[in-house]
């Protein structure tokens, strides 16, 4: 398969734009979902159904006065939200958005980079994401920010372990760490969720914790910490922090659907012969799954109260990690037994 630079550039720009637009409209969706769950109407003044609300919010963020506190460490204060945003956008490089399309006699893979350690790349970027919060929280030179940053980073480190362990079972089954290969092996309706329900449960819980979403949103717990790590932030710097959270939700939804729900695969896909139609339908299927998971994130946020901090740590270290280890052992045993019967 010939790879042209222009294809990749094109793909990168599209993925970038799509992530931003989806994150933009997630903010509206969040408010609409919360309104629905609380029997309210939600924003409905700007545009029809409030469709222009995110635009209005964005404009407002840009035009607010940008304040850098006197006592803050200026360089780190600016670096914090930048790292958060960059790492949030970087992960999308290894996600396979579709199989391939045929254009001008060439096959163009709908994945920016199919590296053979794709899933580890995701983990590396996620583990760097902690720095955005830590640096911002420390650089603000405010005790609430610092406490929020400490909570965020210890939470993210703790849940990264369980998350990695839950992935190992999938990698063992697939025999590859490339996300493209993992998705290819779930062809049709052969999705990993049927083999790894516990792995998915652990991964999903950890994804909530990594995104700092309720019930794990202790880093920005309003009742205790004012605004958490972004207490001192204003204007678009605050906007970047809040925005990167929504991009992270989008990306983790994409990874959950790719790892466990077949990505762009859908049942009876073998009936379609045209590769371009297949790619289009696959893309629709993938985005339907992603949007469902984004909704799921919001659904949980407005339904479940947050944990206490010690409960959060207990859940991570005493339940999820042993469960994930047991899952690996069971998967290995079943694989060994089934391979000896073949």
């Amino acid at each position: 398969m010939e790879i042209l630079l222009i294809d990749k550039v094109f793909l990168i720009v599209i993925v970038f734009a799509v992530s931003l637009v989806i994150a933009l409209y997630s903010t509206l969706a969040e408010r609409k979902v919360s309104a629905f769950l609380q029997d309210r109407l939600g924003p409905n003044r700007a545009g029809i159904f409030g469709l222009l609300q995110p635009v209005a919010d964005g404009v407002k963020f840009f035009f607010k006065e940008d304040i850098i506190p006197n006592h803050a460490d200026k360089a780190l204060y600016i670096l914090g939200p930048s790292i958060s945003m960059i790492t949030a956008l970087m992960t999308s490089a290894v996600i396979p958005w579709g199989s391939y399309i045929e254009f001008d006699g060439r096959q163009i893979a709908l994945q920016v980079a199919d590296i053979n350690i794709g899933i580890l790349y995701v983990f590396a970027v996620v583990s760097i994401g902690v720095y955005g919060i830590m640096i911002g929280g420390w650089g603000s030179n405010n005790k609430f920010s610092l406490l929020g940053a400490l909570r965020a980073s210890s939470q993210m480190i703790s849940y990264e372990i369980a998350m990695g362990l839950s992935i190992i079972a999938v990698v063992m089954m697939t025999g590859s760490m490339s996300l493209g290969e993992i998705v290819r092996q779930q062809h049709g309706f052969n999705w990993n969720i049927f083999y790894q329900p516990i792995g998915f449960l652990i991964f999903c819980i950890c994804a909530f914790a990594e995104c700092n979403r309720t019930p794990f949103d202790l880093p920005e717990c309003e009742a205790e910490l004012v605004g958490g790590y972004h207490t001192e932030y204003s204007s678009m710097k605050l906007g970047l922090y809040l925005f990167s959270e929504y991009i992270n939700i989008f990306i983790s939804s994409a990874i959950m659907s790719a790892m466990f729900f077949g990505g762009y695969n859908f049942p009876f896909m073998d009936l379609i012969s045209s590769p371009n139609l297949l790619a289009a339908l696959g893309l629709i299927a993938f985005f339907a799954k992603i949007l469902f998971f984004i909704f799921f994130f919001m659904w949980v946020r407005w339904t479940i109260p947050r944990f206490r901090y010690d409960q959060l740590m207990t859940l991570g270290w005493k339940y999820l990690i042993p469960l994930a280890l047991a899952n690996i052992v069971v998967t290995g045993t079943v694989m060994l037994i089934s391979s000896s019967f073949k």
Partner: peptide, 11 residues
């Protein structure tokens, strides 16, 4: 990156 930059340096 995962081990050194992502875990140890965070500690």
């Amino acid at each position: 990156i995962i081990v050194y930059a992502g875990a140890i340096m965070v500690l």
